[in-house]
């Protein structure tokens, strides 16, 4: 049963914030507004992380998404667009079919989520800590961590090569 405790209230507000941001992002026409709406969503998600006792992740989320990625996207917009507005519409059939497909997919997800019994118990959240997280990352998952760092390096190099102006 859903009880009216603090976590619920926080979850409610934050999820409304995230969903509203997402929906606004889809519906806004000015690109800067879109990015702001998306940043709003990312902040909401960071708050959700906090309610889930993942404070470190929340911080990372704010730093990377709300900060770095949004700014990156803003640069992308500024460097590729001449006009400010997006040119949506003109494909009503496509939009309608997309709506149907996504709606069907959503209905399916909801059906599965609410039709499945989740028997898990609440974890012992007092054991959650940043140092525990660090230990997991650097001990148990050290090889994925290293692979990820290589991925980042490759992405960095690749991004530079791709974005570099070609010499004609």
């Amino acid at each position: 049963m859903i009880s009216m405790n603090g976590e619920f209230i926080a979850f409610f507000l934050l999820s409304v914030m995230a969903i509203a941001g997402a929906v606004f992002m889809i519906n806004f026409t000015r690109v800067v507004h879109m990015i702001l709406a998306l940043a709003f969503t990312f902040l909401g998600i960071a708050g959700i992380f906090v309610t889930l006792n993942a404070e470190f992740l929340a911080v990372v989320q704010v730093l990377i998404y709300t900060g770095a990625v949004s700014i990156l996207m803003l640069f992308g917009i500024m460097l590729t667009r001449h006009r400010d507005e997006t040119r949506d519409g003109g494909r009503p059939w496509h939009a309608f079919l997309c709506f149907l497909g996504v709606g069907g997919f959503f209905a399916l997800l909801m059906r599965i989520i609410y039709g499945s019994p989740f028997n898990g118990e609440t974890a012992k959240t007092e054991t959650f800590s940043v140092s525990g997280l660090g230990e997991s990352v650097f001990k148990q998952y050290v090889i994925p961590f290293e692979v990820t760092s290589i991925l980042l390096l490759v992405a960095l190099v690749g991004a530079i090569i791709l974005a570099k102006k070609e010499r004609s």
Partner: peptide, 22 residues
Amino acid sequence: ALGAILFCVGLYGVLTKRNAVM
């Protein structure tokens, strides 16, 4: 459910947005 909602909104955006940045 929250995840599903956000996912579907994102999916809709992927399928319909004209601007590649979006």
